[in-house]
Amino acid sequence: MYRVMLLPADADTRELRRALWAARVGHRITEESEGQLLWLADPGQHEALLDVVGRWQRGEPLPVDAPRRHSMSAGALPSVLRQAPLTAATLGLCLLVFAAMAVFGDMVIALLAIVPLGISSAGTLSVGSLPDVLASGQVWRLLSPAFLHFGWMHLVFNMLWLWYFGRQVEALQGSRRLLVIVLAAGIGANLAQYAAGTALFGGMSGVDFALLGYVWLMSRRAPGSGFFVPQMLVVFMLGWMLFTMTDMAAAVGFGNVANEAHLGGLVVGLALGWYHSRGARR
C-alpha cells in the first residue's frame, strides 16, 4: 500500500469508497490521529484515484456501478511483478523445484534436504548430520528444504499465502525487508523441525506463518504502516496450525505435517514484527 493523502477526520467517505471500488481502484482508508489516511494498492492507478477523489471533493456525481469487466492488459502482469519481484521469484523457484522433483525424483530431495539422504548398502535410509553439512560448506541446506513440496495441494496452499503476504511486505517495506524475513524464517523453521528429530521435510509454510505473524503484528502495533490482514484469516491459520498438532489431524489424513517448522516460523515472524513495528510507531 502507498500513502496518498490525508482526509478530514469527520469526512463521510462511504460514497468515496463505493466510487473507488466501482472504478476498480484498490485502496484502503485508515483512521489516524490527524485524520483519515487514504492508501493506494497499485501506484499505476494514482491518476484514476485522484480523479475520483477530486470529483468527490467538488461534490460532482460519482460512478456507483462497476464498469464492464475487461481482460487483463498486456502491461498488468509486468506491473505486478515489478511491485513484488522477490515474491514472484520465490514463488517461481518453488515451482521450478516442484517440476524438477517430477522429473528427477528423489535426487532433488536428497540434494535439497537439510542433511544428505541416501540408501545404505543394507537397504536402510542413511541420514547425514548437520555439523558435517556445515563443515563441508553445504550451507544452502539450511534454507533449501523450504523450496521442497510433496504434492499439488501442499504447493498451491503455500504459494497462495506466500503471494498474499509477501506482496504486502514487499510493496510497503521493500524487497530487502522481505528477503530478511524469508531467510530468517526459512532457516529458523527448518532448524526447529530438524531439532524435533526429522530429517525429511519441506515446504514454504514456515515462511508463510512468519509472514502472517509479521503482517498481523505490524497492523496491530503500527496501524499507520498500511499493513492489513483479516482477523478471521489469522484465526483460521492459527487454528489450522493447532489442529495439525492434534491426534485428530492424523486420524483424518493430516498427520504428516511439519508442525515445529510452522511454530518456528511464526516465532521468527512475531519477533521481527515486534522489532520493526517499534520504529513504525515512532
Results as ranks from 00 to 15, higher is better:
Asn190Ile: 07
Leu125Arg: 06
Val182Leu: 13
Ala196Trp: 13
Leu172Gln: 12
Ser144Lys: 10
Ile187Ser: 08
Arg177Lys: 12
Asn190Thr: 11
Ala185Thr: 02
Val133His: 03
Val169Leu: 08
Tyr164Phe: 14
Phe201Cys: 05
Leu130Cys: 02
Val133Cys: 07
Gln173Lys: 15
Ala189Tyr: 01
Gly224Asp: 12
Arg167Ile: 01
Glu170Asn: 04
Gly206Gln: 01
Gly224Gln: 12
Met153Gln: 14
Phe236Leu: 15
Phe157His: 03
Val127Asn: 02
Trp140Arg: 06
Ser120Asn: 11
Phe104Glu: 14
Gly197Phe: 03
Val235His: 07
Ala192Ser: 15
Gly203Val: 03
Ser136Ala: 15
Ala102Gly: 15
Leu130Tyr: 08
Leu112Trp: 06
Gly118Glu: 12
Pro230His: 04
Leu117Glu: 00
Phe150Gly: 02
Leu212Ala: 09
Ala185Tyr: 05
Thr124Pro: 00
Ile187Ala: 10
Ser219Cys: 07
Gln138Leu: 12
Ser120Gly: 13
Arg221Ile: 09
Leu162Phe: 05
Ser120Gln: 09
Val234Tyr: 08
Ala110Phe: 09
Ala100Phe: 11
Phe147Lys: 00
Leu178Trp: 02
Phe157Trp: 11
Ala100Lys: 00
Gln193Ile: 07
His149Phe: 06
Met107Arg: 15
Met204Glu: 04
Trp216Pro: 04
Leu179Cys: 09
Ala146Arg: 04
Leu143Cys: 00
Leu162Val: 03
Gln168Asp: 13
Trp216Ala: 15
Leu200Pro: 01
Val215Pro: 00
Leu143Gly: 00
Arg177Val: 12
Arg141Glu: 00
Leu233Ala: 14
Met237Gln: 15
Tyr164Ala: 13
Pro223His: 12
Trp163Ser: 14
Arg221Asn: 12
Pro145Ser: 04
Asp106Trp: 14
Val133Lys: 04
Ala184Cys: 07
Ile187Cys: 09
Leu134Tyr: 11
Val103Leu: 15
Ser120Glu: 09
Leu111Pro: 03
Met232Asn: 14
